[in-house]
Design a binder for these strands. Structure first.
Length: 478
DNA sequence: GTAGGGTTAG
């Protein structure tokens, strides 16, 4: 699919070269003469139903019909499709197309490009797009802040948040919600409190439920569980996330009983809502049925407090009463629960029997417990599994070495320690552009000629280089 | 008709 889509590119390039000599002309043409609204509605529908491939194929057909079949709206929907499915090559082509069609200054497209690049892990290019926006509004500032948060750079996110205010752009409820998640990542309680004060002063902001939830979450994660609970109690309108955030908060603070009381209260509230719905047809309250995340909180609470039976009961109830299919994270909680109760064999059996593939994190939970309890056999088994899944990590060898030491198995301990000396510090991988192109060409069964693809890519690379972007839209490999 | 947001095992 990816390669068929690419085929259209030289066609567009050539067509453009003939039709327009300057950017200005092209802008004039697209914004005034043609409004292809019907295909755009179809593109939008595909996007809504998550049919990315259909959207891309339709867009390719539109391009083949001629560039007058598309406009800025078509481009926007396709960029969103690329963002949804994290498609770096297609996304980069869309950006090149936007530049070539003279849409670089459309703030809606620029904002979606920021979103696209940050979803691809390429925050450098996201920032570059942002820099090129002459009059930055609150939406594009927020998109960039959100990009930094999603790319695990919360410090930078808050730095941009401050820059935004220095630039006299007022944050809105979305900006503040995103900034609060940066505070959570940093444990930055003071900044979170500052945002809380700011929200209290601006009355129009206090109506936003997502923002209220973000505040509760921030206080709970930054260690101020009392304020989190106070906010929770004083929030009249609560949704599943409000309840879940508070349950997780109590779980993290080791307050398992309080977490379970909240789950019970949540169920009760939900029953009341249902009764109201039966009695008054016009009643439009939102449902607050515990979801898979709520149960992660509940299971975490049980495992942290060592409440084995309680945890098993809720795990069962989650599946039977609430129809929640357990995911890896739920099994993770259960393995943790069993391990903390010393039931290592039972934990191992659960891992082997569960219907989802275990990951290294799960095996490492077992390995950690084996370290504490001194179970060599299971530790060795977990160690092998981790190696298969993830390769060697220093921390795992430390556990093995400590188990051997505790059992007086000095030769084995020395063996592991020797291996550790050879281990290098964890590094990061990089992708070279050359090898990427090769993979790109050879991976295709139904592709245009190799030369054609190289031409397309060269053209793409040139366009992006000329505008100071990374040529292929991959995460920076430098 | 168009852009940015929240809860998730260790």
């Amino acid at each position: 699919m990816r390669f068929k889509f690419l085929k259209s590119f030289p066609f567009v390039q050539n067509k453009l070269a003939k039709l327009f000599s300057t950017t200005k002309q092209s802008k004039f043409h697209f914004q005034t003469n043609h409004r292809p609204s019907r295909p755009n509605q179809v593109l939008k529908r595909h996007l809504k139903s998550n049919s990315t491939t259909k959207a891309l194929l339709l867009f390719r057909d539109l391009l083949r019909k001629g560039i007058s079949s598309i406009d800025s709206f078509s481009l926007l929907f396709v960029i969103k499709a690329c963002t949804q499915k994290s498609l770096p090559i297609e996304g980069k082509q869309m950006h090149a197309l936007i530049i070539n069609l003279g849409f670089e200054t459309n703030i809606f497209l620029q904002t979606s490009l920021i979103d696209l690049y940050s979803a691809l892990g390429n925050i450098g290019d996201a920032h570059h797009v942002f820099e090129e926006i002459p009059t930055k509004n609150v939406v594009c500032w927020t998109a960039l802040i959100s990009g930094y948060v999603d790319n695990q750079k919360p410090n930078k996110a808050l730095q941009v948040f401050r820059q935004m205010q220095m630039g006299n752009v007022e944050p809105d409820q979305v900006t503040l919600t995103v900034a609060l998640s940066a505070c959570v990542d940093l444990g930055a309680l003071e900044m979170g409190e500052w945002i809380h004060t700011y929200v209290s002063r601006r009355k129009e902001l206090s109506k936003d439920l997502s923002l209220d939830n973000a505040l509760i979450n921030m206080y709970a994660k930054c260690g101020d569980i009392e304020t989190a609970r106070h906010l929770f109690d004083s929030t009249k309108k609560k949704d599943v996330t409000t309840w879940t955030s508070m349950i997780v908060g109590h779980a993290l603070h080791g307050q398992a009983e309080e977490a379970l009381r909240l789950l019970a209260a949540m169920k009760e509230e939900n029953n009341r809502a249902r009764a109201k719905k039966r009695n008054f047809d016009s009643w439009r309250g939102s449902s607050i049925v515990p979801n898979n995340v709520t149960f992660i909180g509940v299971l975490m609470a049980c495992s942290h407090a060592g409440m084995l039976e309680e945890g098993k009961k809720h795990f069962q109830s989650m599946i039977e009463d609430y129809g929640v299919k357990p995911r890896l994270s739920h099994f993770g909680c259960m393995v943790d629960l069993l391990c903390r109760s010393g039931l290592l064999q039972e934990a191992y059996d659960l891992i082997m029997d569960m219907p989802v593939q275990p990951n290294a994190v799960l095996w490492r939970t077992l390995l950690g417990a084996c370290g504490t309890r001194g179970n060599i056999d299971l530790a060795a088994e977990a160690r092998v599994r981790i190696l298969e899944l993830e390769g060697s990590r220093v921390g795992d060898n430390v556990i093995m070495s400590n188990i051997f030491a505790a059992k007086g198995m000095w030769d084995e301990k020395i063996g592991v320690r020797e291996k550790m000396k050879q281990q290098r510090a964890p590094g990061c991988s990089s992708i070279e552009v050359g090898s990427l192109i090769n993979e790109f060409v050879t991976a295709d069964d139904d592709h245009p000629s190799k030369r054609e693809i190289y031409e397309v890519l060269e053209c793409l690379i040139e366009t992006m280089k000329a505008h100071g972007y990374s040529p292929l839209g991959m995460a920076s490999s430098s």
